[in-house]
Amino acid sequence: MADKGRPLMRRKEKASAERTKDVQKVKSEGERAVDNGEAPPAEASNGAVDGSQNGESPVEPMELPPFEIIQGDRIDPFAFKFQFKNVEYSSGRNKTFLCYLVDEGQAADGLLRGYLEDEHTGAHAEEAFFTQCLLNYDPALRYTVTWYVSSSPCSACAAKIAEVLKARTNVKLSIFAARLFEWEETEIQVGLKALHATGCKLRVMKPLDFSYTWETFVENEEEPLNLWEDCKENYEFYQEKLADILQ
């Protein structure tokens, strides 16, 4: 991408990303990136494998990869500030945080709220939402679902979400994304258009959305969020790109 007409911050972000993209690796399990606020990865879990055949006993549980879907109530503030920052060049932000609100149309039950976190080594947070958060899906109910995500869906996730929304017409989904994931790629654009065609609302997060997400989904200890210098300008940049894709 050409840098003409973009703020100095973006050019610096790009230069930094180019210098570091070959050396940045996923943190080893249990490490914490203090400088960038990234939360430590989840601990490894074990899964049993049914290897019984010819009367043999099942084999011992196999060790799964260390990075799994994490589900919780509130996000670590350091992780939020790093992962949701709407910079154009997002080197090192190798996971997706998905904050969700679900209204099942039953006022007495209130809203279902929480967040999911992935490491892009297995199932993504978008797919996991439908298998972990809507386990008791009822076709008789009307679901209003809102996501605040650190980046927009990849092409594979966009296709899967579109399939779910076509099959479950009683689910209305709005996706507010801090950044657009690889928005220049044709397959990404095709995926976002297909998702939009299902009636899914797609929008880039505004400065007020960041503050709302901070207050609603982050362990903020009642401290306000101090937005970064170019938050509004970066929002306008991404929103313009999204509008061009969806037109």
Rank of each mutant, 00 (worst) to 15 (best):
Gly37Pro: 02
Gly37Gln: 02
Glu38Cys: 04
Pro40Phe: 02
Pro40Val: 01
Pro41Arg: 00
Ala42His: 01
Glu43His: 11
Ser45Thr: 06
Asn46Ala: 04
Val49Met: 07
Asp50Trp: 01
Ser52Gly: 04
Gln53Met: 13
Asn54Gln: 09
Glu56Met: 08
Glu56Asp: 10
Ser57Cys: 13
Ser57Pro: 09
Ser57Ala: 15
Ser57Asn: 14
Pro58Trp: 04
Pro58Ser: 03
Pro58Met: 02
Val59Cys: 09
Glu63Met: 12
Leu64Thr: 12
Pro66Glu: 02
Pro66Leu: 03
Phe67Leu: 08
Phe67Val: 10
Ile69Gln: 04
Gly72His: 07
Gly72Val: 07
Asp73Cys: 07
Arg74Leu: 13
Ile75Gly: 05
Lys85Phe: 14
Asn86Tyr: 11
Asn86Lys: 11
Glu88Tyr: 13
Ser90Phe: 15
Ser91His: 15
Ser91Phe: 15
Arg93Cys: 13
Lys95Tyr: 15
Thr96Ala: 10
Thr96Trp: 07
Phe97Gln: 09
Leu98Ile: 03
Leu98Tyr: 05
Leu98Glu: 03
Cys99Met: 15
Tyr100Arg: 08
Glu104Ala: 12
Gly105Glu: 05
Gly105Phe: 05
Gln106Cys: 09
Gln106Pro: 00
Ala108Leu: 14
Ala108Asn: 11
Asp109Met: 14
Asp109Leu: 15
Gly110Arg: 11
Leu112Ala: 11
Tyr115His: 14
Tyr115Ala: 09
Leu116Pro: 06
Asp118Cys: 12
Asp118Tyr: 06
His120Pro: 02
Gly122Met: 07
Ala123Cys: 08
His124Arg: 08
Ala125Arg: 04
Ala125Trp: 06
Glu127Val: 12
Ala128Arg: 10
Phe129Lys: 04
Phe130Glu: 06
Leu135Val: 14
Leu135Phe: 10
Leu135Asn: 10
Asn136Leu: 12
Tyr137Glu: 05
Pro139Asp: 04
Leu141Tyr: 04
Leu141Gln: 11
Arg142Lys: 10
Tyr143Arg: 03
Val145Ala: 02
Thr146Cys: 12
Tyr148Arg: 02
Val149Ala: 10
Ser151Tyr: 07
Ser151Lys: 11
Ser152Leu: 03
Cys154Ser: 01
Ala156Arg: 07
Ala156Glu: 04
Cys157Gly: 01
Ala158His: 01
Ala158Cys: 06
